[in-house]
Design a protein around this nucleic acid. Structure first.
Length: 585
RNA sequence: GCGCCCGUAGCUCAGCUGGAUAGAGCGUUGGCCUCCGGAGCCAAAGGUCAGAGGUUCGAAUCCUCUCGGGCGCGCCA
């Protein structure tokens, strides 16, 4: 409907250009919006006011010319000029109920569109280091990223969801050595556990699996392992200590056996993460390995390209990228003085590779604590000649859990953090997915565990799901009473739905496609969450005000059509957020 | 010190690329169950949109500054 009015206005605009009333080169976006007040009709545009300046005319004068030039339409009952120069459109009454037929016809496809035109867009999200289970901080990125990806898919983009696996860095070596030490313990050795190691219980679990797989073949006496190592903190430097420990482990085991430990740890954790996300309703098209990037020489190639482009220099034995020439606050090291590439170097290679894979748009979803990282990646892409307008980073702020009004403390050091899995077990996937995307991603999120668990009206998830279940329940009741819903008869009698509650529902339902489009383009799934609450409220209100299973079959069938449409839109909307739509609760 | 995000009702937050009288939920107060699920509904009270300038027909929205809160500023990942 909105599109229809936009089309009419564009036509009128062309006529005014032809008539010379406005300069031919005037560029103006035709912007149609829903009115907030019924007295202003159903839709309004500020086009005349936007044209006032370039045309050097009074807005109302332009509005009159626009209205005169407007092609006629059977959908529109009235066009009025109001206030400083708004043009208000009122639809013919018959236009509204039609939305119900559209919804019943389209079913799950209602709200989907093709504005993406099949363009390929990549969404990379979560990408947590595979050194331990996902925690609740990752949960928000997972829920948000999945919702953004699903929204983009819903409006016609070809979406590629990707998880970047940091399986090549020092942190992974630390994990491997942690696993190995726990394994030694399991073999009966007594080892002092490094203060910088991974202390979580899951490491013991992986060590146990290792022992099952290889027996005591990889066991070495603790005395040999720790002989002459630099001291751990607090006497010594914990970083130096653990690096020496890693080197010793590699020396004692040899490359092949070290790799065995490393790979078992990596695959165990990746498997855990994958299962965790899957249970959270989050699936990926690809898991992209950093190690494969290093192995294929892509990192060297990317660094080489920067060097050839004259964007690098050497200082202090290291190779630097002149990112400050592209807006970053300082230059960044690509290759350390020890010859090892930095994490940044492989990230440059990864992002270059994204563009080389031919995505038309590349979206990264990061925790807000990485915001300082954005300018350097952008700088690198620019230096490599990529179109940075096609690169977008969405930063997700922290989520803080509350229980009983108190902040839930999390400590990574002790290994006692709240995992995503624990959260799912406590509040359920539906509540978790919904709560995570209830707020704009720039907004800090207060996650109230008690509220998420509560089965009451206070809890928006239950409120919305209840509306869905209630519709299903009405249909169950109808069947029990032997009433058969005749959809065709219902659709033929939609004009009978003249109650205020019914009109409100038509209006609400009709804006759903606009909403999905807006939410997708703005990457704002929270708009869907808010909409669904309002829709559910409209429905519950209607439910309380009017019986659906009335005697008169025509009216009854029409009302059943309407509430079935409501059910469909709730199901579609919840689906975009990864929340289930139960038939009973 | 520099950079990014945030500041709207007692609390948690919406407010669509600037638009007509700033909206929800919770909480508070007062109502609605012989009836399709009361896990629901209705009503009332509650605001100097942090503050000050600026841009214009018009600013919660855009720009600048100030104040307050969060986060980040490694040859870590």
């Amino acid at each position: 409907m909105k599109d229809h009015i936009q089309t009419l206005l564009s036509a009128a605009l062309d006529r005014l250009r032809d008539q010379g009333l406005i300069p031919a080169d005037t560029e103006v976006a035709v912007h149609v919006e829903r009115t907030r007040d019924r007295r202003h009709g159903d839709f309004a545009t500020n086009l005349a006011m936007a044209l006032a300046r370039p045309a050097r005319r009074n807005p109302r004068e332009i509005a009159q010319a626009l209205v005169a030039a407007l092609p006629s339409s059977p959908e529109i009952e009235r066009v009025e000029i109001a206030g400083p120069g708004f043009i208000n459109f009122t639809l013919v009454p018959e236009a509204w109920p039609r939305v119900v037929s559209h919804i019943l016809e389209a079913g799950e496809a209602y709200g989907r569109s093709d504005i993406g035109a099949g363009r390929r867009v990549q969404v990379e999200f979560v990408s947590a280091n595979p050194t331990g289970p996902l925690h609740v901080g990752h949960g928000r990125g997972a829920a948000y990223g999945a919702a953004v990806a699903d929204l983009l898919a819903a409006v016609g983009y070809q979406v590629h969801r990707e998880y970047y696996v940091n399986d090549a860095g020092r942190q992974m070596n630390i994990l491997a050595v942690s696993v190995w030490l726990r394994y030694l313990e399991a073999c009966g050795e007594t080892v002092p556990f490094p203060s910088n190691g991974y202390r979580g219980d899951y490491v013991r679990g992986i060590a146990a699996r290792l022992r099952e797989a290889v027996g005591e073949r990889l066991c070495r006496p603790a005395g040999e392992v720790f002989a002459d190592l630099p001291p751990d903190a607090p006497q010594g430097d914990k970083e130096v200590h653990i690096d020496a420990l890693i080197a010793r482990a590699k020396a004692l085991l040899g490359e092949a056996e070290w790799r065995e430990v490393f790979d078992l740890g990596l695959s165990a954790i990746l498997e855990d993460i994958r299962e965790d996300l899957e249970a959270f309703g989050v699936v990926y098209e690809a898991w992209f390995s950093e190690r494969s990037l290093v192995a294929s020489g892509a990192v060297e190639r990317a660094v080489e390209r920067l060097r050839e482009g004259g964007h690098t220099y050497e200082k202090g034995g290291a190779l630097w990228f002149r990112s400050s020439a592209f807006g970053d606050e300082k230059d960044r090291v690509l290759i350390r003085d020890n010859g090892e590439p930095t994490y940044f170097a492989s990230d440059v290679a990864y992002h270059l590779e994204k563009f080389e894979r031919g995505f038309e748009h590349v979206i990264d979803i990061w925790g807000a604590d990485h915001h300082g990282y954005v300018p350097r990646v952008r700088a690198a892409l620019q230096a490599l000649g990529c179109d940075v307008d096609r690169f977008e980073v969405l930063l997700v702020q922290f989520a803080v859990l509350y229980r009983g009004g108190e902040k839930v403390q999390m400590s990574t050091r002790s290994g006692e953090f709240v995992t995503l899995r624990q959260l799912r077990e406590e509040v359920g996937t539906d509540a978790a997915r919904f709560f995570y995307v209830m707020r704009r991603c720039e907004q800090h999120l207060d996650f109230d565990l008690d509220l998420a668990k509560s089965q009451s009206a206070d809890n928006p998830v239950y409120y919305i799901q209840y509306a869905h279940a209630r519709v299903c329940s009405v249909f169950r009741q109808a069947r029990e009473k032997g009433l058969v819903w005749d959809r065709v008869r219902g659709e033929a009698n939609l004009h009978r739905l003249v109650e205020g509650h019914e009109q409100a529902l038509f209006e609400r339902l009709s804006r759903y496609p606009e909403l999905v489009e807006a939410a997708a383009l703005a990457r704002e799934p929270h708009q869907i969450a808010h909409y669904l609450r309002e829709l559910a409220n409209d429905f519950h209100t209607y439910y309380n005000a009017h019986p659906f299973l009335v005697e008169e079959a025509e009216l009854r069938d029409a009302r059943l059509c309407l509430i079935e449409a409501v059910r469909q839109v709730i199901a579609n909307g919840l689906g975009l957020l990864g929340v289930s739509a139960p038939e009973s609760m």
